[in-house]
Every structure is written in structure tokens, then in C-alpha cells.
């Protein structure tokens, strides 16, 4: 069995088939990219995997279990974390606390033990310190020390994207969904992001499913690519093959008018 597999996934909004029979498999440890023009259904696919949308048909198998139709928090528990295209951070918390939320599933402090946080040696106190150490490692990994105690709402866009990545990493996922991690970043920030994605793959051994418009990045880091258009798969394969595929070129660049006339 594959590590992660999507089989014949379809979802419809009214009369619009946003996804129509999508199938692909992920090997453990690879970086798999999904590309396609705007409105191709890439983010919809992520939302289906996450459980934010409920697909009409198909299967999503993660480690031999069907996770289709599960609620987002159960999907997170299964070991899938994600980042968002439009940043979805908790604006009134600082960086540390935002990433701490990624540790939510690993913390056992409930209402009562939390309420009786009297001192360093209380259960909640010990747990807070232990997990903050863990978060500090992520902050070090992503070079976020400068933003550590700042409210994230006022931080630069690129930093916010990094914090989102950090929050997803704090979940210690086995599969990480990255929705346009480089969107709106400058060249330097993009380079950093590429390094981190590679590091996450190599050092942490996390499988990555990636949506990205920046073709340089996609060609650079992905092992395999799936191209979508209008909710249907066009082609799948190695970066260099997908790049040359005529259907992909057509979807991105449009058809040559002259050729049509002729």
C-alpha cells in the first residue's frame, strides 16, 4: 500500500465540478507538487484532504486508513498538517504562542490542571516549559528568534509565512501540505523557503505535498509533479517531463491563435 493515496476524488459545487476523478499516490519521504492555472482545483483538493470540504466520491487513504469525511481535527490527529495560501495565523497571539498551538494535540493540560498553574512544578507548568522548549527548536530551525515575542499580526508577510510553516511543523506531521509557501515572497525569502522545504524532507523525513506557482521552485525541489486543469488531471511525472507536456503548455500559455486558424 502506498503511504498516501487519493483515489477518484470528486467534489461539486452546484453545477461546477471542482474536482473530477483525481487520483495519485505519494511515496514516503518524497516531495510531490501539484501545479495548475488559477481555479484548477488545487486548494480545493487540499481542503478535501483536510476535511474542510466533504468530497462527494472517492477515497483518501493515509497509512491504510480512509480519512475521507473525517473532521479537520481528526485528520490533524492522524498526522497531516498544512499551511494556508492566505495566511491564517492567530493575529493576537505572539509567535511562540502561535507555534505552541501546533503542540495542542501533544499537551494533556485540561481545564482544571490549567487553571491550577501554581508554579513551575505544577503539572501544567512542567508541560508548558517542556513544550516551549520543543517550540524553541522550531524557532531556531526557521530563524524566527527576532519575532519570538511579537504579535504576529504586525509582522512582515514573509515572516508570517514562516510562522505558519513552524506551526505546521510543531504538529510533528508525517505528511505536510504546503499551499503556495512562496506566494508573495521576495527572491531571498524564496531561497530560504526552498532550503527549509528541502531540510524538512531530508532531516525530518516528512513527506510533502506542495502547491506552488513559482515554477523554478517546483522544478527545483519536487520529485514528482501532478498537473491539474479545470479539476481534472492532465499529466503526472518527473518535473522535466511535465514541463514539456503539450497539454500543460496549453493550459498555462493558451493555444496559439495562428495555429488554430491554420
Amino acid at each position: 500500500m502506498a503511504f498516501f493515496e487519493v483515489k477518484d476524488l470528486s467534489i461539486q459545487f452546484g453545477g461546477l465540478k471542482a474536482l473530477d476523478g483525481i487520483s495519485f499516490e505519494l511515496e514516503k519521504g518524497e516531495v510531490y507538487a501539484i501545479i495548475g492555472p488559477n481555479g484548477a482545483g488545487k486548494t480545493t483538493l487540499f481542503n478535501c484532504i483536510n476535511g474542510i470540504y466533504q468530497p462527494r466520491a472517492g477515497q483518501i487513504m493515509f497509512k491504510d486508513k480512509n480519512i475521507r469525511g473525517k473532521k479537520p481535527d481528526k485528520v490533524a490527529k492522524a498526522g497531516i498538517a498544512r499551511t494556508f495560501q492566505n495566511i491564517e495565523l492567530f493575529n493576537n497571539m505572539n509567535t511562540m504562542e502561535n507555534i505552541m498551538l501546533g503542540r495542542h494535540l501533544y499537551m494533556k493540560t485540561g481545564l482544571f490542571r490549567g487553571a491550577f498553574l501554581w508554579g513551575k512544578n505544577s503539572f501544567a507548568g512542567k508541560e508548558e516549559v517542556a513544550h516551549r522548549k520543543k517550540v524553541e527548536e522550531i524557532i531556531d530551525f526557521l530563524d524566527l528568534q527576532a519575532a519570538r515575542n511579537k504579535l504576529v499580526g504586525g509582522l512582515p508577510y514573509g515572516t508570517q509565512k514562516q510562522i505558519e510553516l513552524g506551526r505546521a511543523l510543531a504538529l510533528e506531521p508525517e505528511l505536510l501540505l504546503l499551499d503556495e509557501p512562496c506566494a508573495g515572497m521576495n527572491a531571498e525569502e524564496k531561497q530560504d523557503m526552498i532550503f527549509w522545504v528541502k531540510d524538512i524532507q531530508d532531516e525530518l523525513g516528512i513527506t510533502i505535498l506542495l502547491i506552488e506557482h513559482d515554477m523554478n521552485m517546483v522544478m527545483d525541489i519536487s520529485d514528482r509533479i501532478l498537473a491539474l486543469n479545470f479539476g481534472r488531471p492532465i499529466t503526472e511525472g518527473k518535473p522535466e517531463d511535465v514541463q514539456k507536456h503539450p497539454e500543460v503548455l496549453k493550459a498555462y500559455l493558451g493555444e496559439d491563435e495562428g495555429e488554430c486558424a491554420a
Binding site: 479537520p72 481535527d73 491564517e88 493576537n92
Partner: peptide
């Protein structure tokens, strides 16, 4: 933190396991 996360971005909170 779970409370605040629901207030600030409920979808993100849910995908983080809240």
C-alpha cells in the same frame, strides 16, 4: 490558546487539531 485560536482563525485552529 485553543479559545483564542478559535476566535482568530477557526479553520486554521481546526486543522491544527483543535
Amino acid at each position: 490558546r485553543a479559545f483564542i485560536s478559535i476566535r482568530d482563525a477557526d479553520i486554521a485552529a481546526e486543522t491544527m487539531g483543535v
